[in-house]
Design a protein around this nucleic acid. Structure first.
Lengths: 147, 147
DNA sequence: TCATTTCAGTTTCATAATGCAACTGAAATA
DNA sequence: TATTTCAGTTGCATTATGAAACTGAAATGA
Protein backbone atom coordinates (compact mmCIF):
# COMPACT_ATOMS: atom_id res chain seq x y z
CA UNK A 1 0.00 0.00 0.00
CA UNK A 2 2.92 2.39 0.48
CA UNK A 3 3.75 4.38 -2.60
CA UNK A 4 7.22 5.45 -3.61
CA UNK A 5 6.38 8.96 -4.78
CA UNK A 6 5.53 10.62 -1.50
CA UNK A 7 7.99 11.48 1.24
CA UNK A 8 5.93 10.01 4.08
CA UNK A 9 6.18 6.69 5.86
CA UNK A 10 3.04 5.56 4.07
CA UNK A 11 0.15 6.96 2.09
CA UNK A 12 -2.29 6.77 4.99
CA UNK A 13 -3.90 10.07 5.98
CA UNK A 14 -3.76 9.21 9.68
CA UNK A 15 -0.06 8.58 9.32
CA UNK A 16 0.35 11.93 7.58
CA UNK A 17 -1.42 13.70 10.43
CA UNK A 18 0.76 11.93 12.96
CA UNK A 19 3.90 12.84 11.07
CA UNK A 20 2.75 16.47 11.22
CA UNK A 21 1.47 16.51 14.79
CA UNK A 22 2.44 13.30 16.54
CA UNK A 23 4.44 14.60 19.44
CA UNK A 24 3.74 15.88 22.92
CA UNK A 25 3.92 19.57 22.20
CA UNK A 26 2.71 20.66 18.78
CA UNK A 27 -0.98 20.33 19.50
CA UNK A 28 -0.57 22.05 22.87
CA UNK A 29 0.74 25.11 21.06
CA UNK A 30 -2.23 25.01 18.69
CA UNK A 31 -4.50 24.59 21.71
CA UNK A 32 -2.96 27.69 23.30
CA UNK A 33 -3.61 29.71 20.18
CA UNK A 34 -7.12 28.45 19.54
CA UNK A 35 -8.49 28.04 23.04
CA UNK A 36 -6.48 30.56 25.01
CA UNK A 37 -5.80 33.25 22.43
CA UNK A 38 -2.03 33.11 22.89
CA UNK A 39 0.17 34.44 20.12
CA UNK A 40 3.76 35.03 21.21
CA UNK A 41 6.75 32.92 22.23
CA UNK A 42 6.59 34.31 25.73
CA UNK A 43 2.92 33.48 26.12
CA UNK A 44 3.43 29.89 24.99
CA UNK A 45 6.24 29.54 27.53
CA UNK A 46 3.89 30.30 30.40
CA UNK A 47 1.60 27.35 29.82
CA UNK A 48 1.14 24.90 32.64
CA UNK A 49 2.88 22.03 30.91
CA UNK A 50 6.19 23.87 31.00
CA UNK A 51 7.61 23.40 27.53
CA UNK A 52 11.36 24.01 27.30
CA UNK A 53 12.50 27.14 25.44
CA UNK A 54 14.47 25.26 22.79
CA UNK A 55 11.68 22.77 22.15
CA UNK A 56 9.20 25.61 21.81
CA UNK A 57 11.42 27.42 19.32
CA UNK A 58 11.83 24.20 17.37
CA UNK A 59 8.10 23.43 17.27
CA UNK A 60 7.15 26.96 16.24
CA UNK A 61 9.60 26.68 13.37
CA UNK A 62 8.34 23.26 12.30
CA UNK A 63 4.68 24.21 12.52
CA UNK A 64 5.48 27.25 10.41
CA UNK A 65 7.33 25.13 7.85
CA UNK A 66 4.40 22.75 7.67
CA UNK A 67 1.97 25.55 6.91
CA UNK A 68 0.05 25.26 10.17
CA UNK A 69 1.29 28.51 11.70
CA UNK A 70 2.39 31.77 10.20
CA UNK A 71 4.87 34.20 11.76
CA UNK A 72 3.94 37.86 11.56
CA UNK A 73 5.54 40.98 12.97
CA UNK A 74 4.07 42.38 16.17
CA UNK A 75 2.62 45.80 15.47
CA UNK A 76 3.65 47.62 18.64
CA UNK A 77 6.75 45.71 19.85
CA UNK A 78 9.48 44.84 17.38
CA UNK A 79 11.06 42.28 19.69
CA UNK A 80 8.00 40.08 19.41
CA UNK A 81 6.48 38.09 16.62
CA UNK A 82 2.94 36.87 16.36
CA UNK A 83 2.26 33.25 15.56
CA UNK A 84 -1.16 32.85 13.99
CA UNK A 85 -2.90 29.75 12.67
CA UNK A 86 -3.45 29.29 8.97
CA UNK A 87 -6.56 27.68 7.53
CA UNK A 88 -4.76 24.37 7.76
CA UNK A 89 -4.26 25.08 11.46
CA UNK A 90 -7.87 26.08 11.99
CA UNK A 91 -8.88 22.74 10.53
CA UNK A 92 -7.31 21.14 13.59
CA UNK A 93 -10.18 22.35 15.77
CA UNK A 94 -12.16 19.11 15.42
CA UNK A 95 -9.10 17.06 16.39
CA UNK A 96 -8.58 19.22 19.47
CA UNK A 97 -12.24 18.85 20.39
CA UNK A 98 -12.06 15.08 20.14
CA UNK A 99 -8.82 14.91 22.11
CA UNK A 100 -10.43 17.08 24.74
CA UNK A 101 -13.59 14.98 24.89
CA UNK A 102 -11.60 11.74 25.18
CA UNK A 103 -9.33 13.13 27.86
CA UNK A 104 -12.19 14.60 29.85
CA UNK A 105 -14.10 11.33 29.71
CA UNK A 106 -11.23 9.05 30.69
CA UNK A 107 -9.50 11.30 33.19
CA UNK A 108 -12.38 13.24 34.73
CA UNK A 109 -10.01 15.23 36.94
CA UNK A 110 -9.10 17.15 33.78
CA UNK A 111 -12.60 18.31 32.89
CA UNK A 112 -12.81 21.46 34.97
CA UNK A 113 -15.53 23.77 33.79
CA UNK A 114 -15.33 22.76 30.15
CA UNK A 115 -19.04 22.33 29.82
CA UNK A 116 -18.87 23.24 26.16
CA UNK A 117 -17.07 20.01 25.29
CA UNK A 118 -20.38 18.32 25.94
CA UNK A 119 -21.99 20.06 22.98
CA UNK A 120 -22.44 16.92 21.04
CA UNK A 121 -22.38 15.82 17.52
CA UNK A 122 -24.97 13.26 16.63
CA UNK A 123 -24.27 12.49 12.98
CA UNK A 124 -20.69 11.79 13.90
CA UNK A 125 -21.89 9.67 16.78
CA UNK A 126 -23.83 7.43 14.38
CA UNK A 127 -20.83 6.67 12.20
CA UNK A 128 -18.73 5.99 15.27
CA UNK A 129 -21.34 3.58 16.57
CA UNK A 130 -21.31 1.60 13.34
CA UNK A 131 -17.54 1.28 13.33
CA UNK A 132 -17.48 0.44 17.02
CA UNK A 133 -19.97 -2.35 16.47
CA UNK A 134 -17.99 -3.87 13.64
CA UNK A 135 -14.80 -3.93 15.75
CA UNK A 136 -16.64 -5.56 18.64
CA UNK A 137 -17.98 -8.21 16.28
CA UNK A 138 -14.47 -9.02 15.19
CA UNK A 139 -14.91 -7.63 11.69
CA UNK A 140 -12.47 -5.21 10.15
CA UNK A 141 -13.89 -1.81 9.39
CA UNK A 142 -13.10 -2.31 5.74
CA UNK A 143 -15.69 -5.09 5.77
CA UNK A 144 -18.44 -2.76 6.95
CA UNK A 145 -17.56 0.63 5.52
CA UNK A 146 -16.73 1.47 1.95
CA UNK A 147 -13.40 0.60 0.26
CA UNK B 1 -4.27 26.18 36.66
CA UNK B 2 -2.09 23.09 37.17
CA UNK B 3 -3.09 21.12 40.22
CA UNK B 4 -0.65 19.30 42.47
CA UNK B 5 -2.68 16.13 43.02
CA UNK B 6 -2.54 14.59 39.57
CA UNK B 7 0.52 13.02 37.99
CA UNK B 8 0.18 14.82 34.67
CA UNK B 9 1.94 17.89 33.31
CA UNK B 10 -1.29 19.84 33.74
CA UNK B 11 -4.96 19.29 34.37
CA UNK B 12 -5.94 19.93 30.74
CA UNK B 13 -7.78 17.08 29.03
CA UNK B 14 -6.00 17.70 25.73
CA UNK B 15 -2.70 17.41 27.54
CA UNK B 16 -3.85 14.16 29.14
CA UNK B 17 -4.73 12.72 25.74
CA UNK B 18 -1.37 13.77 24.37
CA UNK B 19 0.46 12.22 27.29
CA UNK B 20 -1.41 9.01 26.54
CA UNK B 21 -1.14 9.08 22.75
CA UNK B 22 1.20 11.86 21.69
CA UNK B 23 3.79 9.94 19.75
CA UNK B 24 4.21 8.71 16.21
CA UNK B 25 3.18 5.12 16.74
CA UNK B 26 0.49 4.55 19.36
CA UNK B 27 -2.42 5.74 17.26
CA UNK B 28 -1.14 3.81 14.24
CA UNK B 29 -1.44 0.60 16.25
CA UNK B 30 -4.98 1.56 17.27
CA UNK B 31 -5.71 2.35 13.63
CA UNK B 32 -4.49 -1.09 12.62
CA UNK B 33 -6.79 -2.74 15.12
CA UNK B 34 -9.83 -0.61 14.40
CA UNK B 35 -9.56 -0.06 10.67
CA UNK B 36 -7.64 -3.11 9.51
CA UNK B 37 -8.71 -5.75 12.02
CA UNK B 38 -5.15 -6.55 13.10
CA UNK B 39 -4.61 -8.23 16.44
CA UNK B 40 -1.16 -9.74 16.82
CA UNK B 41 2.41 -8.49 17.17
CA UNK B 42 3.29 -9.98 13.82
CA UNK B 43 0.40 -8.30 12.07
CA UNK B 44 1.30 -4.88 13.47
CA UNK B 45 4.87 -5.38 12.26
CA UNK B 46 3.71 -5.70 8.66
CA UNK B 47 2.18 -2.22 8.44
CA UNK B 48 3.51 0.11 5.80
CA UNK B 49 5.05 2.56 8.22
CA UNK B 50 7.58 -0.05 9.33
CA UNK B 51 7.59 0.23 13.09
CA UNK B 52 10.69 -1.27 14.74
CA UNK B 53 10.20 -4.46 16.76
CA UNK B 54 11.39 -2.96 20.03
CA UNK B 55 9.27 0.15 19.66
CA UNK B 56 6.22 -1.99 18.87
CA UNK B 57 6.78 -4.15 21.94
CA UNK B 58 7.18 -1.01 24.05
CA UNK B 59 4.01 0.64 22.72
CA UNK B 60 1.91 -2.49 23.11
CA UNK B 61 3.02 -2.68 26.72
CA UNK B 62 2.32 1.00 27.38
CA UNK B 63 -1.07 0.98 25.70
CA UNK B 64 -1.94 -2.06 27.79
CA UNK B 65 -0.78 -0.34 30.99
CA UNK B 66 -2.86 2.69 30.11
CA UNK B 67 -6.01 0.63 29.71
CA UNK B 68 -6.36 1.21 25.99
CA UNK B 69 -5.46 -2.31 24.90
CA UNK B 70 -5.87 -5.67 26.56
CA UNK B 71 -3.67 -8.70 25.98
CA UNK B 72 -5.48 -12.02 25.64
CA UNK B 73 -4.27 -15.52 24.81
CA UNK B 74 -4.67 -16.67 21.24
CA UNK B 75 -7.09 -19.59 21.15
CA UNK B 76 -5.37 -21.78 18.59
CA UNK B 77 -1.68 -20.76 18.77
CA UNK B 78 -0.01 -20.41 22.16
CA UNK B 79 2.93 -18.46 20.77
CA UNK B 80 0.65 -15.59 19.90
CA UNK B 81 -1.29 -13.12 21.97
CA UNK B 82 -4.24 -11.05 20.87
CA UNK B 83 -4.26 -7.34 21.51
CA UNK B 84 -7.81 -6.04 21.64
CA UNK B 85 -9.10 -2.55 22.30
CA UNK B 86 -10.91 -1.77 25.52
CA UNK B 87 -13.87 0.63 25.68
CA UNK B 88 -11.35 3.37 26.33
CA UNK B 89 -9.63 2.37 23.11
CA UNK B 90 -12.86 2.26 21.14
CA UNK B 91 -13.52 5.81 22.27
CA UNK B 92 -10.53 6.83 20.15
CA UNK B 93 -12.52 6.24 16.96
CA UNK B 94 -13.61 9.90 16.65
CA UNK B 95 -10.02 11.07 17.07
CA UNK B 96 -8.88 8.69 14.34
CA UNK B 97 -11.66 9.89 12.07
CA UNK B 98 -10.67 13.52 12.57
CA UNK B 99 -6.99 12.79 12.04
CA UNK B 100 -7.92 10.95 8.88
CA UNK B 101 -10.14 13.75 7.62
CA UNK B 102 -7.48 16.37 8.30
CA UNK B 103 -4.75 14.34 6.66
CA UNK B 104 -6.86 13.51 3.63
CA UNK B 105 -7.82 17.16 3.19
CA UNK B 106 -4.34 18.62 3.52
CA UNK B 107 -2.37 15.88 1.79
CA UNK B 108 -4.78 14.63 -0.86
CA UNK B 109 -2.30 11.99 -2.06
CA UNK B 110 -3.21 10.08 1.11
CA UNK B 111 -6.92 9.85 0.47
CA UNK B 112 -7.08 6.72 -1.65
CA UNK B 113 -10.51 5.19 -1.72
CA UNK B 114 -11.52 6.34 1.72
CA UNK B 115 -14.82 7.70 0.56
CA UNK B 116 -16.33 6.95 3.95
CA UNK B 117 -14.28 9.67 5.64
CA UNK B 118 -16.52 12.12 3.83
CA UNK B 119 -19.56 10.97 5.79
CA UNK B 120 -19.98 14.20 7.56
CA UNK B 121 -21.09 15.45 10.85
CA UNK B 122 -23.08 18.63 10.76
CA UNK B 123 -23.72 19.38 14.42
CA UNK B 124 -20.01 19.14 15.01
CA UNK B 125 -19.39 21.34 12.04
CA UNK B 126 -21.51 24.10 13.58
CA UNK B 127 -19.53 24.20 16.81
CA UNK B 128 -16.29 24.18 14.86
CA UNK B 129 -17.50 27.09 12.76
CA UNK B 130 -18.27 29.17 15.83
CA UNK B 131 -14.85 28.55 17.35
CA UNK B 132 -13.13 29.16 14.05
CA UNK B 133 -14.86 32.49 13.71
CA UNK B 134 -13.85 33.63 17.16
CA UNK B 135 -10.20 32.79 16.50
CA UNK B 136 -10.27 34.68 13.22
CA UNK B 137 -11.75 37.69 14.98
CA UNK B 138 -8.89 37.65 17.46
CA UNK B 139 -11.02 36.63 20.39
CA UNK B 140 -10.05 33.75 22.65
CA UNK B 141 -12.46 30.85 22.57
CA UNK B 142 -13.10 31.32 26.24
CA UNK B 143 -14.71 34.62 25.28
CA UNK B 144 -17.19 33.00 22.93
CA UNK B 145 -17.92 29.60 24.41
CA UNK B 146 -18.94 28.88 27.96
CA UNK B 147 -16.45 29.16 30.85
C1' DT C 1 10.06 -38.17 17.84
C1' DC C 2 13.19 -34.95 16.31
C1' DA C 3 14.68 -31.23 13.26
C1' DT C 4 13.09 -27.02 11.40
C1' DT C 5 10.37 -23.02 11.20
C1' DT C 6 7.55 -19.47 13.12
C1' DC C 7 6.55 -16.43 16.49
C1' DA C 8 6.92 -12.73 20.05
C1' DG C 9 9.67 -10.49 22.00
C1' DT C 10 14.86 -8.87 23.94
C1' DT C 11 19.49 -7.14 23.55
C1' DT C 12 22.97 -4.31 21.69
C1' DC C 13 24.58 -0.29 20.01
C1' DA C 14 24.68 3.89 17.19
C1' DT C 15 22.13 8.09 16.40
C1' DA C 16 18.62 11.51 17.26
C1' DA C 17 15.43 13.98 20.28
C1' DT C 18 14.51 15.95 24.74
C1' DG C 19 15.11 18.93 28.62
C1' DC C 20 17.44 22.08 31.66
C1' DA C 21 20.17 26.11 32.53
C1' DA C 22 23.10 29.58 31.21
C1' DC C 23 23.92 32.71 27.58
C1' DT C 24 23.22 36.32 23.61
C1' DG C 25 21.83 40.27 21.11
C1' DA C 26 18.27 43.31 19.79
C1' DA C 27 14.57 46.33 21.15
C1' DA C 28 11.83 48.62 24.77
C1' DT C 29 11.68 51.14 28.99
C1' DA C 30 12.96 54.25 32.77
C1' DT D 1 22.27 56.01 28.85
C1' DA D 2 21.57 52.07 31.94
C1' DT D 3 18.51 48.46 32.78
C1' DT D 4 15.04 45.30 31.68
C1' DT D 5 12.43 42.48 28.63
C1' DC D 6 12.10 39.63 24.95
C1' DA D 7 12.90 35.81 21.61
C1' DG D 8 15.59 32.84 20.76
C1' DT D 9 20.55 29.87 20.96
C1' DT D 10 24.15 27.06 22.90
C1' DG D 11 26.12 23.41 25.65
C1' DC D 12 25.53 19.34 27.83
C1' DA D 13 23.47 15.37 30.22
C1' DT D 14 19.75 12.13 29.75
C1' DT D 15 16.37 9.62 27.31
C1' DA D 16 14.08 7.79 23.20
C1' DT D 17 14.47 5.88 18.69
C1' DG D 18 15.75 2.64 15.13
C1' DA D 19 18.13 -1.20 12.82
C1' DA D 20 19.85 -5.76 13.24
C1' DA D 21 21.17 -9.71 15.46
C1' DC D 22 19.75 -12.75 18.97
C1' DT D 23 16.72 -15.86 22.25
C1' DG D 24 13.52 -19.20 23.83
C1' DA D 25 9.12 -21.20 23.50
C1' DA D 26 5.64 -23.30 20.70
C1' DA D 27 4.04 -25.12 16.22
C1' DT D 28 4.90 -27.78 12.17
C1' DG D 29 6.63 -31.37 9.08
C1' DA D 30 9.24 -35.55 8.17
Amino acid sequence: MASENNPYRSDCPINYSLEMLGDSWSLLIIRDIIFAGKRTYGEFLTSDEGIARNILANRLQQLTCKGILEKKPHHTDNRKDLYVVTDKGLDLIPILLELSAWGAKHEPSTSHGQSWVAETNLDREQLVQRIRQSVLEGRSVFDSVGD
